[in-house]
Design a protein around this nucleic acid. Structure first.
Lengths: 269, 269
DNA sequence: GCTTGACTCTCCCGTAACGGGAGGCCGTAA
DNA sequence: TTACGGCCTCCCGTTACGGGAGAGTCAAGC
């Protein structure tokens, strides 16, 4: 006969846990002193404790373990095991999905970290072609929010990058701007009301703007100044890529919004 | 402004959950009527709800989500994400281990199901060689329990099959039987006090005994009767394989114990 | 025999993220 | 007026314990 402390050392189970198992009828002390209430365990219970630990490692709940322990005719033991197996499998699938999403999140965040280093610096780079789903409209820029909302909802897990806005106007228009909200996607997914197509890649002048959208004008000025100075030929539409802003995960305050202005230019100037 | 019921439909979150999030300060209704206590949500909160759901899918706890939502300067956002990622990975590893153990358990149980169909029927079969760790002793059969205990504890996850007992005596001995408790193992693991070696395979006469160990004698009689009738030459030691018994996972009552008696015989009779 | 320190007891609270239900208020439609 | 549906608060239950309070117990040393 062992006291609960000794039994705890034998089984590596905390005293609290042993008391709990006792109260739950899972591992009842062989003898309880009626005067003192002290629990005493006997040798054979070490084995039972081991089985309980084993079943716990198989992710069974205590009530399942209890019924498993009391199971004599283990008719549906196999069923129980198989069900547990598939339940765990389900959970693993779920967690794997979470890891996948986290990885995308991390990758996006890292990219943002890189982009933020080039804030307000004109960059020249070469864009890859990009498969997108887009919804085009005329109106105010501020109306593009719902478009992204619709795209986001319909595309769900097919989204493969940052939302972007194409500007088809060559001038600034307040009320009837012509623009298209786009989402990069992977695989060809058709969306009602949206056109799915590949945006061309190519040489591009880019600048990362930090701050609220109202101040985008200043950054546009900078870009066009550069384009003129280098006599680049602009290919319409120009693009805005939303690196960080409202509607993104974890919006911050507008002063930290990050938007990349991309202007494709003719390859040979 | 939406009532909580409407907002619930918009966000697909149960009303109870919304109230809970409100109380927790995670998603506080934009307006609470001071007279009626009714909660009213505004349009922009749908987005917040979506972010919360997203982060929940990433397996963040509500308190983590709360701090993530309030995070402005997301200095250590990447750290948080990476830590979450590795935490999930840990959990996946754990679950995979559980599935592995479950698979072993299921396989063993299925094998038992097959064996139980041949109870009391003499079988002839060919055994494969078997790598085991064994502890040999002289004494009473009932003393073999601790031996298996020691083997089990030292071998841990290297165990690759059912425990078995080798009988080196050619007669029944009460007090000074010569036997060896063995555990099949995978990979060469040395255990102090145990000999690791390969048991030979070969032609074998086997019988599955159901019932308490005290009645094993009857089954042995059956086996030897068969061996004599067919003029087999017995190769010592004989083996007992414990398919189901005490010390196994889920002991049942002794009437259902399953023990396989294996007697290797000379290949050419 | 007494004290001391280690051990044990019961009881209660807290965890995480809600779900169920009771009992009651509010607004509206028949 | 009455019913009905929606909303409210409050409380309990879930799982598998851990922490701590306050009190009783055990064994050893003096």
């Amino acid at each position: 006969m062992f006291s609960i402390g000794e039994f705890s050392q034998l089984t590596q189970l905390p005293v609290k846990t042993l008391r709990f198992y006792h109260d739950e009828g899972l591992l009842i002390a062989a003898h309880v002193d009626p005067d003192t209430g002290y629990r005493y365990y006997q040798n054979s219970q070490v084995e039972t404790a081991r089985i309980i630990v084993y079943l716990r490692n198989l992710e069974f709940s205590l009530s399942e373990i209890k019924s498993l322990l009391h199971t004599q005719g283990d008719d549906d033991l196999l069923n129980v095991l198989e069900r547990q197996r598939s339940a765990i499998h389900e959970r693993i699938k779920q967690l794997r999905q979470a890891v996948k999403s986290l990885d995308q999140f991390i990758a996006a965040e890292k990219e943002t970290r890189i982009m933020v280093q080039t804030v307000d610096q004109i960059q020249e780079k070469v864009l890859d072609p990009l498969l997108v789903a887009g919804i085009r409209m005329k109106g105010r820029y501020s109306d593009c929010g719902p478009l992204f909302g619709r795209l986001g909802r319909s595309l769900g897990r097919h989204i493969a990058g940052r939302p972007l806005l194409l500007h088809f106007d060559n001038e600034y228009r307040e009320d009837d701007a012509d623009f298209e909200a786009c989402m990069p996607i992977r695989g060809a997914k058709t969306v009602e009301g949206a056109s799915v197509r590949e945006l061309p890649g190519g040489r591009c002048v880019s600048l990362v703007h930090r701050g609220p959208y109202e101040q985008l004008g200043r950054s546009y000025a900078k870009v066009f100044e550069y384009l003129n100075a280098h006599k680049f030929k602009v290919l319409s539409p120009t693009r805005e890529v939303y690196l960080k802003g409202p509607g993104m995960i974890l919006k911050g305050n507008p002063k930290n919004y990050l938007t990349e202005i991309q202007v494709l230019v003719d390859g040979d100037t």
